[in-house]
Amino acid sequence: MTIADPMLIGLLVLGIGAGALGALVGIGGGVVIVPVLLLVFGFDVRVAVATSLLAVVATSVAAGSVHLGTGLANLRIGLSLEVVTIAGGIAGGLIATSIDPRFLSVLLAVVLGVSAALLLKGRDEHGLRDGPGDAEPIEAHQTVGRLAGTYQDGHGGGLVAYEARRVPAGASLALGAGALSGMLGVGGGFLKVPAMNLVMQLPLKVSAATSNFMVGLTALGSLFIYIARGYFYPYPAAPVVIGVMLGGLVGARLQHRSSPNVLRLVLSGVLTIVAVQLILGGAGA
């Protein structure tokens, strides 16, 4: 590769696209990066996963630096789930670097197809409200020890209050999300957002922002295993990551103003396309 190499430009463009899309739909962008590196750039699946894991961290941090300012991400919920999610991520990294890589491609296609279907079945965010604008503002000390909070709805609906329910069920799904993240280089947001939204009954925007905060930590847990086992190539990874940072900042700013149902449709469509391409790519190889 040289500086004017089409591959270098291609990796940068891939990063920008994945970063913007990832921040918009509350996922780390890995669901785009891994299949594209695999199918378009011809990377080994484990090298693609390692590259994607760092990109997932970048998306999470870039978007989080915007989300945390809007108060959408709930750090207590995020870190509580993260304890088990990282454990899953570490286990996933250890498994993926020890098994047949073809298994990983098939697993990725299955996971993307399932998560696309889950999101299409998703509940409308308005059904989860206690009524628009009737919540009193909550100061930080009032949520001490509670998995609760409020957020300002960007559509002018006023302050929306929420409290996490069925935490053990949500945590079980987060553990699985972590394992898949470590094996497939995806943030696991595609599982965590529905888990928080549908199971724990958190508003979609809170789920997406909280998931986004979590995925960077999850990816960090498994990235070290890929580096240590010689699957991390810093040169192709860096242009993807730089692109992801730029794309993530743009996407996160757009998210606060966008409609949750449109986001859900976009995410579902993207996942379906990628799953089909993965299966077609596997059949053609």
């Binding site: 207590r76 509580s80 250890l94 070290f224």
Partner: peptide
């Protein structure tokens, strides 16, 4: 929740140790 955050840090350290040991 400070304890929860400490547990997350602990898990990250565990991942680093397992990773570096390969």
């Amino acid at each position: 929740y400070a304890g929860v955050a400490a547990a997350v840090i602990g898990m990250i350290l565990l991942g680093m140790v397992l990773g570096v040991r390969g």
